[in-house]
Design a protein around this nucleic acid. Structure first.
Length: 473
RNA sequence: GGCGGCAUAGCCAAGUGGUAAGGCAGGGCUCUGCAAAAGCCCCAUCCCCAGUUCGAAUCUGGGUGCCGCCUCCA
């Protein structure tokens, strides 16, 4: 029997019980990135959040189908392409590769499909045509616009009223538009830009249409989840709804799930503001488990602050969780069987209860912050048990199972393998050699030689020179 | 100006009507050759005001402050 999962739906602004379109299956479309610059910390949030959600659904027994797009036809990419004299496709591919490499490093499981705009022009044209045929869109001089006024429910996701939206408009309105809020489905080609043939002349897709076309192709009508950062609610997701629902007459997605922004000094991290923390650099500096721990330490819908030293602060708590699990795994080797004592039973019962609480937390709108809190209870419970001399295999196994499954397999914050640190060898050698120098000054040559011989056995050659010791591998 | 959201201890952060999870930091203690690790104990009445209620951090109204969106953006 499936457990009940509750999800906050941006559309209804309420937590709802999740009912899949098809029993036992979950279909998910997460808006990916526009690959025109380096992957940053902000991109990691929805990725890790959805990674956990998907792992959780799989654990619950659902079959998942996860699609994440790359918008590889876009103004910024074209701009870069013209600047660098490199084809747009190539620019996009460079950043797609970087994005995927970063996500792999973060332990994010790959989506089932990563459709690109450039490979779905046909589907997009067909969808645009369908909207024109149904009277929701109009062509004008090679452009095609969606007529916002023709779609009654426009604004239902972002809770905006049409009239008020326009007051905030800071850009000049394209005179070809019938209505200032209309948006482009298809843009007429400009010289030097990548362009495709279409019934309206050479051109390229507008921003939002690709998601409508590709979600339809890979997930069909009315799929389960549509996700992304909450900065996409308007206009991107609002427009997707308009396009898709106008075309199919059915809801685009059943549940809209939006993650909060990562802020830096209380300002959103974004490419345009230039206050970006490169994900690649973070991954070089910090263990991926710690990064995930940081990203999951707050509920996914809340904002999340980043500042220098934040990861260092968090690393102490994370290490306790991680080290406790590591030690527990080791202790398992020396665990003992036999009758369960009263203490054993009590601990076992607590551990089971905590596990239920973790499941309940994740089932309640994917509350990873609460789940982590409970996992610290598990750590304390297990450590206290061991502190009192508890060694029963069944108990230790249960503790390990809970941590391994939830902290490890589902949240992905555990990192049990030893960290290999760059520059560690240098530091160690410096320390060892300085101690050896001390010994030599004290004429303790026996011990000093033992160190040198021992190092030699490890393949490290030490040479004593007038300028001090040198070493090489 | 419109829309959405947030405001809980020094810091991070759960908690949506029944009397404040968890983590970091801090204090005391156990263990320890010393240290580390680990364990035990201590450490908040929830931005302000007014309501609803037997009872509110949790609901309503009004403030104040902050964030996001309204332009590309995860």
């Amino acid at each position: 029997m499936k457990r009940e999962v509750r999800v906050y739906n941006t559309l209804t602004q309420e937590k709802e019980v999740f009912v899949p379109r098809e029993p036992g299956k979950v279909s998910i479309y997460v808006c990916g990135v526009t690959p025109y610059s380096d992957t940053h910390l902000g991109h990691a949030r929805p990725s890790v959040v959805w990674d956990v959600i998907i792992r959780f659904f799989r654990w619950l027994g659902y079959e998942t189908r996860h699609v994440q797009n790359f918008t590889d036809v876009d103004d910024k990419i074209i701009q870069r392409s013209l600047q660098e004299g490199v084809p747009a496709v190539q620019i996009a591919q460079r950043y797609i590769d970087e994005y995927l490499a970063s996500m792999d490093a973060l332990g994010v499981q790959r989506a089932d499909y990563y459709p690109k705009v450039s490979e779905h022009i046909e589907e997009i044209i067909a969808l645009v045509q369908r909207l024109i045929d149904k009277g929701y869109a109009y062509a004008a001089n090679g452009d095609v616009f969606f007529s916002v006024a023709s779609f009654d429910e426009y604004g239902k996701l972002s809770k905006q009223k049409l009239e008020e939206l326009l007051e905030g408009t800071r850009f000049e309105v394209d005179p070809k538009k019938k209505d200032a809020a209309d948006f482009a489905l298809w843009k007429a080609a400009k010289p030097g830009e990548p362009a495709w043939d279409s019934p309206w002349g050479k051109g390229r897709p507008g921003w939002h249409i690709e998601c409508s076309a590709m979600s339809l192709k890979y997930l069909g009508e009315e799929f389960d989840f549509h996700g992304g950062g909450n900065d996409l609610i308007f206009p991107h997701h609002e427009n997707e709804i308009a396009q898709s629902e106008a075309a199919t007459g059915k809801p685009l997605a059943r549940y809209w799930v939006h993650s909060g922004m990562i802020t830096l000094k209380e300002a959103k991290m974004s490419k345009s503001l230039g206050n970006i923390i490169s994900l690649g650099q973070l991954l070089e500096k910090y263990p991926r488990g710690l990064l995930r721990f940081y990203l999951l330490s707050t509920h996914y819908r809340s904002g999340l602050e980043y500042y220098d030293g934040k990861l260092e602060e968090m690393s102490r708590g994370w290490s306790r969780l991680n080290e406790s699990a590591r030690k527990l795994q080791e202790d398992l080797q020396e665990a003992q069987g036999g009758e369960l004592s009263a203490e054993d039973r009590e601990t076992l019962a607590s551990l089971s209860r905590y596990e239920e609480e973790v499941i309940a937390a994740l089932s309640d709108d994917f509350n990873t912050a609460m789940a982590l809190g409970i996992l610290f209870d598990v750590v304390r419970e297990v450590n206290a048990y061991k502190h009192q001399g508890g060694l029963h295999r069944e108990v230790l196994q249960k503790g390990w199972d809970v941590l391994k499954l939830w902290a490890g397999d589902i949240l992905g914050v555990l990192q049990l393998e030893q960290q290999r640190q760059e520059g560690l060898a240098d530091g160690l050698m410096e320390l060892i050699l300085s101690i050896r120098e001390q010994l030599r000054r004290e004429k303790n040559f026996a011990l000093a030689d033992r160190i040198r011989d021992g190092l030699a056995e490890l393949g490290v050659v030490v040479e004593d020179t007038p300028q001090g010791p040198r070493w090489k591998v």
